[in-house]
Design a protein around this nucleic acid. Structure first.
Length: 261
DNA sequence: AGTACCACCTGACGGC
DNA sequence: TGCCGTCAGGTGGTAC
């Protein structure tokens, strides 16, 4: 789930539910998701604070504590959030549970435990220390072109490289390349100016469209590949078949006739 | 600089 | 029904 559009939707979810309410307890079910802090320390730091505002950069969500620093949430491959009334049942795979004074709770859900939560002083420092590139929805064409210039790798791997630009993962890189009509293994340096423009435009378009549809594939436009992302499915744009391809160790999907090399 | 491969962790799914 | 291998939307490290 959690690439840029999914995290943006989670941000909106948190913003519309869990802001400005005093935290009275924090449970950590498995501290493997904590980075650089113990469960006791985390609870100590959070109790009495409120979540005041949020910010997203790439796949990372930052929550500003009032008073206090920032909580950084990463959702790995399977992360999710759920806000619910205390008498309702705790969601499966809840790893961290924030209890608010209003008797609601926010669950940080993570079946595969590959996410991370930590306390940080500043999102900007975090972004710099982790060498994250600019957010994929927050750069203009000229910057995009500069980031890609001189790259020798394949376009799919390049789009997914968080140090070049942040937010795009395996699934959305497939969609962007599909909409742009570019083969996933095309070398970045072999892209024409027109293809670069197309790539940039479709990147913006796909990410924004996904956000507009709550990152739910079943609500995506008919022309989207994501709902058909498995081998043998029909390409939504031609009569061809969707194919699986291995690119830098990740399984991608594409339409060989719409995305010729 | 880029890629391949392994590791982390655990659920879901298909085959037998 | 159970066991087993494989894959899964994440990142990080190492070796080449």
């Amino acid at each position: 789930m959690p690439e840029l559009p999914d995290v943006e939707v989670l941000k909106g979810y948190l913003d519309s539910t869990a802001l400005h309410q005093e935290i009275e307890a924090v449970d950590v079910n498995d501290e493997i998701v904590l980075e650089g802090i113990t469960p006791d320390k985390l609870e100590h730091e959070l109790v009495g604070c409120t979540f005041d505002a949020t910010r997203r950069h790439g796949k990372h969500l930052f929550v500003n504590l009032q008073p206090g620093d920032w909580l950084e949430l990463h959702f790995g491959m399977t992360g999710d959030l759920k806000y619910y009334k205390h008498e309702e049942q705790e969601p499966d795979y809840t790893q961290i549970l924030f209890h608010f004074k209003n008797h609601y709770r926010l669950a940080y859900i993570m079946p595969r435990k590959l996410g991370e939560v930590q306390l940080i002083e500043s999102p900007d420092d975090f972004i710099e220390e982790n060498n994250l590139g600019p957010d994929a929805l927050d750069l203009d064409f000229e910057s995009f072109k500069d980031l890609l210039s001189g790259r020798r790798g394949m376009v799919k791997s390049t789009l997914m490289n968080q140090e070049i630009l942040a937010g795009i993962g395996n699934v959305y890189s497939d969609e962007i390349l599909y909409q742009a009509g570019i083969h996933p293994r095309t070398k970045v340096k072999e892209l024409s100016d027109q293809q670069l423009h197309q790539l940039y435009d479709k990147m913006q378009d796909v990410l924004q469209t996904a956000i507009d549809h709550q990152a739910k594939p079943e609500q995506f436009p008919d022309s989207y590949l994501i709902p058909h992302r498995s081998e043998g499915e029909k390409c939504p744009k031609c009569a061809g078949e969707v194919k699986r391809i291995e690119v830098s160790g990740r399984g991608g999907y594409y339409c060989p006739s719409c995305q010729s090399k």
